Lab assay of single mutants.
Amino acid sequence: NKFNKEMRNAYWEIALLPNLNNQQKRAFIRSLYDDPSQSANLLAEAKKLNDAQA
């Protein structure tokens, strides 16, 4: 399933972002599970926040 693969990839990328705190990571990951079709958008948002907090 395409969404499962995208979701799994996004999950690990988000989990490993160095500048997000655990609460932020959990919120993004919860959103991934709520709507796997938004994986790419959620990952992009997480990366933006990660960069902003660098």
Rank of each mutant, 00 (worst) to 15 (best):
N1P: 11
K2D: 15
K2W: 10
F3W: 05
F3C: 15
F3R: 04
N4D: 14
N4T: 07
N4A: 04
N4F: 12
N4V: 04
K5G: 03
K5D: 10
K5Y: 03
E6L: 10
E6P: 04
E6H: 05
E6T: 05
M7G: 02
M7P: 01
M7L: 13
R8H: 10
R8A: 13
R8M: 14
N9V: 14
N9Q: 15
N9S: 12
N9H: 15
A10W: 06
A10P: 01
A10K: 05
A10I: 11
A10Q: 02
Y11K: 14
Y11P: 01
Y11T: 12
W12M: 12
W12D: 04
E13K: 15
E13N: 13
E13G: 14
I14S: 00
I14K: 00
A15V: 12
A15Y: 15
L16P: 01
L16D: 09
L17A: 09
L17R: 01
L17F: 09
P18A: 15
N19S: 10
L20I: 08
L20D: 00
L20H: 00
L20G: 00
L20R: 00
N21C: 04
N21R: 09
N22A: 11
N22W: 12
N22S: 13
N22V: 11
Q23S: 10
Q23I: 14
Q23R: 11
Q23P: 07
Q24M: 05
Q24R: 04
Q24V: 05
Q24Y: 03
Q24H: 02
Q24G: 01
Q24F: 03
K25L: 05
R26A: 06
R26W: 13
A27F: 15
A27V: 10
F28T: 01
F28Y: 10
I29V: 13
I29Y: 13
R30C: 03
S31E: 07
L32K: 00
L32R: 00
Y33F: 13
Y33D: 02
D34C: 09
D34G: 12
P36H: 04
Q38N: 11
S39K: 14
S39L: 15
A40G: 09
A40F: 12
N41Q: 13
L42P: 01
L42Q: 04
L42S: 07
L42K: 04
A44P: 01
A44H: 12
A44D: 11
E45W: 15
A46P: 00
A46L: 01
A46M: 01
K47W: 12
K48P: 00
K48R: 11
K48Y: 10
K48M: 11
K48W: 10
L49C: 03
N50L: 01
N50P: 01
N50C: 02
D51M: 13
D51S: 09
A52T: 10
A52N: 10
Q53V: 09
Q53K: 05
A54F: 11
A54G: 07
A54Q: 14
A54V: 13
